[in-house]
């Protein structure tokens, strides 16, 4: 099969079993834990997981405990895609030599630091070589594992411990990197954004991605209560606001063809998203109002560009 038709799954059809189980030490209300748990529910037990160094890796495998019920390997921070490449070719050749019968899915998980920054070269190499695997970037928009340092996925204006809001500089000065744009530039079969708050869209995208005979990328927004500074109970709400303000559009690109999956026809102003997170608190001060204006303008611009790519409007 070359392409995946959308296999819509309802909550009641999802397996009872978890393949990443309780007892892990991700923070209470962690969005990334939700992202991993949903992905594994979609993929099922016939899956090998490669995990880049990061929150998900450390908090789920504190020796002698592991939360994983699928074969799992962590090697280093920047090389999850390269490790996955080796696994994929090994399966190919061992199958050819009749030394292996299983044909497992391969999912590589990397945070935004392990994907946008230090892992981008290994990811690019693996995408170019065309290995059959799914790369899931769980994006919590900073290096959360090491204590909230800025990454190239951190949005403009956000305060982190290395892009603090100071007397002179009001948080991060640069826009967020376009990961899916980079992935699509490799002419891979499938790339998509998702947000944990839209479970159906995300889970079905994982299922769909695993059906392609080639590399696929899912960029899933995973709000972080600790780094974004909101109440742990609000994780899903914050993700929903990111989508409903059009700050994080939900779309997919199949063989180069863009499709908007969630059309936000009545967007909320970005301030609704900004004002509920501590990392943006300084933007509410009068001297920084122009930054909010810039963010809104950029969101409008990016949205209209996306609509064009999707041949809408």
């Amino acid at each position: 099969m070359v392409g995946g038709e959308r296999i819509m799954v309802t909550l009641k059809e999802l397996p009872l079993e978890d393949y990443i189980v309780s007892g892990h030490r991700m923070c209470a209300g962690c969005g990334s834990a939700i992202a991993a748990r949903m992905a594994l529910k979609a993929a099922g037990p016939n899956t090998i997981v490669v995990n880049a160094t990061g929150c998900l890796e450390v908090a789920t495998t504190i020796y002698p405990y592991t939360s994983w019920r699928v074969p799992w390997i962590h090697v280093a921070f920047e090389n999850a895609a390269a490790v996955a490449s080796g696994i994929e070719v090994a399966i190919k050749v061992l199958t050819r030599k009749n030394l292996m019968k299983q044909q497992p899915n391969i999912i590589a998980f990397g945070g935004d630091g392990g994907t946008f920054d230090i892992g981008i070269q290994a990811l690019s190499g693996a995408l170019e070589r065309g290995h059959r695997f799914l790369y899931i970037c769980y994006d919590n928009e900073a290096y959360m594992n090491t204590g909230i340092q800025r990454s190239s996925a951190t949005p403009l204006g956000a305060a982190t411990t290395t892009s603090p809001s100071g007397r002179v500089i009001p948080g991060k000065k640069e826009w967020k990197k376009d990961l899916i744009g980079i992935a699509v530039a490799h002419s891979i079969p499938y790339a998509a954004t998702a947000c944990i708050s839209y479970w159906s869209d995300y889970i079905n995208k994982v299922k769909k991605a695993l059906n392609f005979n080639g590399p696929t990328v899912i960029h899933v927004l995973s709000p972080c209560q600790l780094g974004w500074r909101f109440d742990p109970s609000e994780t899903i709400k914050i993700g929903r606001l990111a989508v409903q303000t059009r700050i994080f559009p939900i779309y997919e690109v199949e063989y180069g063809k863009y499709k908007l999956n969630i059309n936000v026809t009545k967007p909320l102003p970005v301030i609704e998203y900004i004002k509920v997170q501590g990392r943006f608190r300084h933007l509410l001060e009068p001297q920084n109002s122009h930054i909010i204006k810039d963010i809104q303008e950029n969101v409008n611009l990016q949205w209209s560009r996306l609509l064009k790519l999707c041949s809408i409007g």
Binding site: S22, G23, T61, Y65, T66, S67
Partner: peptide, 12 residues
């Protein structure tokens, strides 16, 4: 870690 899902032994 040979035992899959052993974190069930760790109560959070």
């Amino acid at each position: 870690i040979p035992k899959a899902g052993s974190s069930l032994e760790y109560k959070t």
